[in-house]
């Protein structure tokens, strides 16, 4: 066993874990935050995307111990005070999902894209930047629309970035 400490959605957490524990297992099983999903478990599908120190990463391909001392934001950390984050609201408004399994990862990636590329995103950029997120339902059409609208909405929002 090994000790690990990190900040998850603004809360300091400490635990004694098996070194094999992946970050996604730590988030889901230890912290009981099950919004982050395990899809492929091979760092391809992006259902497990969270932010570590402000950068989007695939939490299925990271040991929790590698994140010792880090600041982690999951999908649960986006909404504040019962109000959806603008990107979440945009996915709802534009119906950027069907089954919803990929949605947490899509939204965490989308917020990361805005943080890196700004609020005015064209379709080509969005599609290229969503390379690491796979959706098997929608054909991406509404996801792209949602990301474009969410990016614009983030410009006028107090929740510009993920709550870190």
């Amino acid at each position: 066993m090994a000790a690990v400490s990190m900040t998850v959605n603004g809360h300091s957490v400490t635990a004694d874990i098996d070194p094999r524990t992946l970050l996604v297992q730590f988030i889901r099983d230890n912290q009981r935050l099950t919004g982050t999903h395990v899809g492929c478990d091979t760092s391809q599908c992006g259902a497990c995307v969270v932010h570590v120190d402000g950068k989007a990463v695939k939490s299925c391909t990271l040991l929790a111990l590698q994140c010792d001392g880090s600041n982690v934001t999951t999908i649960e950390g986006l909404a504040a005070g019962g109000v959806l984050h603008p990107m979440q609201e945009a996915f709802r408004e534009h119906h950027g999902l069907q089954c919803g399994f990929c949605t947490p990862g899509m939204i965490m990636s989308a917020v990361d894209i805005v943080n890196r590329k700004g609020n005015n995103l064209d379709e080509h950029t969005i599609r290229e930047e969503l390379e690491g997120n796979i959706c098997r339902c929608t054909g991406y059409h509404n996801i792209v629309k949602a990301v474009e609208a969410g990016a614009k909405a983030m410009a006028g929002s107090s929740m510009k970035r993920a709550a870190e």
Partner: peptide
């Protein structure tokens, strides 16, 4: 290389 998340790690 890979995708944005892979490039971050």
């Amino acid at each position: 290389i890979g995708d944005p998340h892979v490039r971050n790690r």
